[in-house]
Design a protein around this nucleic acid. Structure first.
Lengths: 131, 131
DNA sequence: CTTGACCTTCCAGTTACTGGAACCCTTATG
DNA sequence: CATAAGGGTTCCAGTAACTGGAAGGTCAAG
């Protein structure tokens, strides 16, 4: 399979797949013409990465997860630990966004949004008595 | 005021303040020794930026907000539009994180987290029948 | 034989800083 | 007066994870 086929199959952009080879997440073979040739394992690996990325795992976390995935002697505790750390980070970010959302919502509600200059949003940013 | 004083006053790192000058968000004066001299307006401007950033506005959005802030003929509608677009983006990201959190939570709950290799987290990443 | 769709590599840009090196200025102290 | 600590300065490089674009090789069809 050529790169664009794998791109279609995995939903990953061609550029991204090349990038993943660049950072040694995958090592596809090469044909006589220099084109990358992707095996079923390569595809599988890329799909794995794509799903892990869509769960927000960093590329380095994906690397660790792939290592564990290919390690028959792994302990599920190691996987779980990585996932839990990631979940904690996601919850932290989500809480931050929730806080931002609430504050922004307040400010937006208070703003007339007309052609006059008075604006509670700017007033808050200027004075910082917002939250 | 020297840069470290303003850093203390605004809570922004010294490096960040220099960076903001670099990208022309602020233009502090200079003393005879070449040191930046920050006026009260400079401080005020930096505090404004710091608060906008803490609400998640991008640096470019901060630039727009500062322009509006210094425009006596602004329309609050323009500020409100920027804030609403930003809020929409925040909600989008938050929804994404919520989705990730829920899926991760399911997977983590299903994982024994012991010294055995069986792992629903890896199984899901490998097969993609997770959500 | 040319056109168009592939493929290749390499370089640069994105966001918003952050770390570090090399060096200058100021103030206090032995 | 020398020096050491603690400011300040510039400039360069790196971060994360791609993404866009240029320049050029390859392949199948008409």
């Amino acid at each position: 399979m050529n790169i664009s086929d794998v791109a279609k199959a995995t939903g990953l952009p061609v550029k991204t797949i090349r990038y993943y080879e660049d950072i040694d997440l995958i090592t596809p073979g090469r044909g006589e013409n220099g084109y990358r040739r992707f095996s079923v394992q390569d595809q599988h690996r890329l799909a794995f990465i794509g799903r892990a990325r869509s769960l927000g795992f960093s590329v380095e976390a994906c690397r660790s997860l792939l290592l564990l995935y290919n390690d028959r002697d792994r302990a599920s505790a190691d996987v779980k630990r990585i996932a839990r750390e990631h979940l904690a980070e996601i919850e932290r970010k989500r809480d931050e966004l929730t806080q931002m959302r609430d504050t922004l919502f307040q400010l937006i509600s208070a703003c007339a949004g007309n052609d006059r200059p008075d604006c509670p949003i700017l007033a808050d940013l200027a004075s910082g008595d917002g939250s």
